[in-house]
Deep mutational scan, measured.
Amino acid sequence: MTTFKLIINGKTLKGEITIEAVDAAEAEKIFKQYANDNGIDGEWTYDDATKTFTVTE
């Protein structure tokens, strides 16, 4: 398992979430479901060097 981080730069929600996932594809699926569940819709980026996803509304 690898640790992945999501940085949320939303209009109403900001913060960071860290999860353990098998790979970046699994982490992205989990993070996008979390964002969808919380009404966050924005532009996604991923930095493989730091294993960090960012979503900006």
Rank of each mutant, 00 (worst) to 15 (best):
T3I: 13
E26Q: 01
I19F: 12
K29C: 02
E20Q: 06
T2Y: 12
D48K: 02
L6E: 00
Y46F: 08
G15R: 15
G15H: 07
F53R: 00
D41H: 14
D47V: 09
E20T: 04
G39S: 10
T3G: 12
E28G: 15
I7F: 03
F53A: 02
Q33F: 08
I40G: 02
Y46A: 01
K51R: 08
D37S: 15
G39M: 15
K5L: 13
I40T: 05
T2N: 15
D47A: 11
I40C: 01
E57G: 08
K14P: 06
E57D: 09
D48S: 13
E16M: 10
K5S: 09
N36W: 05
T45N: 11
A21L: 04
A24R: 10
I19P: 00
T18C: 02
D41G: 11
Y34G: 01
K29W: 03
N36L: 13
K14Y: 12
T50Y: 08
T12S: 11
I8Q: 10
A49E: 12
W44Y: 03
T56R: 14
V55F: 05
K14A: 05
L6H: 00
T54S: 08
E28C: 02
I7R: 14
K5W: 15
T54R: 15
A27G: 13
Q33A: 12
F31Y: 10
L6Q: 00
N9Y: 07
T18I: 07
T52V: 09
T3N: 10
A24P: 14
T2G: 05
F4H: 09
A25H: 12
F31P: 00
T12Q: 07
N9M: 13
T54M: 15
D47F: 06
F53N: 00
A24K: 13
A24L: 09
A25I: 02
A25D: 10
Q33T: 09
N38H: 14
E57S: 05
F31I: 13
G39E: 11
A27W: 00
K14H: 14
T12N: 15
A49K: 11
I8G: 03
E20I: 07
Y46R: 07
W44L: 11
F4G: 00
W44E: 00
F53G: 00
T18V: 09
E28S: 06
G15F: 12
G39N: 12
A35V: 10
T2W: 12
Y34Q: 03
N38M: 09
